[in-house]
Nucleic acid binder design. Structure first.
Lengths: 228, 228
DNA sequence: CGGGTACTTGACAATGGTCAAGTGTGGTGG
DNA sequence: CCACCACACTTGACCATTGTCAAGTACCCG
């Protein structure tokens, strides 16, 4: 697939004219990263931002003791690292590929020019950042106001919803990464999935999870307790 | 002070021409709220967003049991409720005044037109949302990776820094609200401030807090333990 | 001066993290 | 093609942090 077609398929650039797309292509830097490579680290000066073409990138924070909290996974078509383009100049978190990934890099200065000339690009970016803010408020809410079983239930329901309501789920990440995304540790995820299995709420076989009792899962997500 | 001067002093509108400012003034709705009034609730359809002229507004989430997590306080010159203008259409959190407040309301549709015509307005808004994202990543980091003494220490240091490094602080919010902002409860704040006093790290008299040992506070913020 | 709210303190409980010791399991190279 | 190794995951015992509940004190505003 040609670069221009790839660029045109990125939601951020939807609504741009052919001419504008060509301008974007002109500043696009095509990069490939192996699995587990660091794209950037927190505090680093940012020269621009990225869009995932293929593969998957995790955005995360690290504690002083080395524990990580994943903020989100970036999948094809989505961008990351935009914050320092517009404020502060430094990346607020770490980015690392979790599989071999192709990324497009867009240098800050030229991109800012483009955005200044093109209101629909600005609008797409505003929508992007707004969606991200919405997700973050949800993350804060879950970390602060919900217990782990509730967060896990919400995540499973989210996966199911994203898969058109299917009850047969397949994790695209390891359970360790899932733990880090939910603000906990693998042991806790293991125990809770164990309890959920025991109550016939889900069935777990490796990365395959089947929702057996959706109602109970919804109750858990709403804050109901999971007894032993 | 006239509306146009007030509007011109809002950072979001910096860099706009006199003419553009007048367009903004045309769509400005001037509102006054008493202390403790709800500005909007989570899930509500948003007709526009707000800027605080005077007073203070808290943005927060509520758990199913009624516990609240404050996302941030909005002070004069700052805006809130922009997310649904660009994505989703519904407020992701609750907003309530914590003192008598004067707010400017900007209706969504007209504001979107303005932004489409004016790149510098779009740019200001992008910077705004980016700063907010940065703050949220920090909030997530603290909630997930740091313990309460560490968060409290970081908050006190932040206050001190904002006050040009002064060691004499005065909370502009109640300790209960501080607890909710730090993702904990008043009892815990009370106990930790008690310990900090006992170790001569700070001195507390009501809402006045004096930093006695800044070094220890920085160590706490970095993750060092606070013994009994 | 009174009343309500903010705050403090204590005893207790529970969520979930730490540490340690396994048990799979998938992928690679011999 | 199989053996092995690394890594993901599980399970158990323990414990730290922090939340809950209850009671009492201080303090501010009207």
């Amino acid at each position: 697939m040609s670069i221009i077609d790839l660029v045109a398929s990125i939601p951020l650039f939807h609504g741009l004219s052919q001419e504008q797309l060509e301008e974007v292509v002109d500043i696009t830097v095509d990069q490939t990263f192996q699995k587990g490579q660091t794209v950037f680290s927190e505090g680093e000066a940012a020269a621009g931002f990225y869009v995932v073409v293929s593969g998957q990138v995790k955005i995360f924070k690290l504690s002083s003791e080395g524990k990580e909290q994943i903020l989100h996974f970036v999948t094809p078509g989505e961008s990351f690292g935009e914050v320092p383009v517009f404020a502060g100049g430094r990346f607020p978190a770490h980015a690392e590929t979790i599989e071999r990934s192709r990324l497009f890099f867009f240098p800050r200065a030229v991109f800012l020019e483009l955005i200044g000339k093109d209101p629909s690009l600005a609008m797409n970016m505003l929508a992007d950042l707004s969606r991200r803010l919405r997700r973050f408020t949800q993350l804060v809410e879950e970390l602060s106001l919900k217990e782990v079983p509730s967060r896990l239930a919400a995540y499973l329901l989210y996966l199911s919803e994203r898969d058109n309501g299917s009850g047969d789920l397949e994790l695209s990440i390891t359970k360790g990464q899932l733990a880090s995304l939910l603000g906990t540790i693998p042991e806790t995820i293991s125990r809770i999935l164990g309890k959920m299995s025991g109550h016939d709420i889900v069935r777990v076989q490796g990365r395959k999870i089947t929702i057996v009792n959706r109602k109970r899962l919804e109750d858990l997500s709403a804050g109901e307790k999971l007894v032993d």
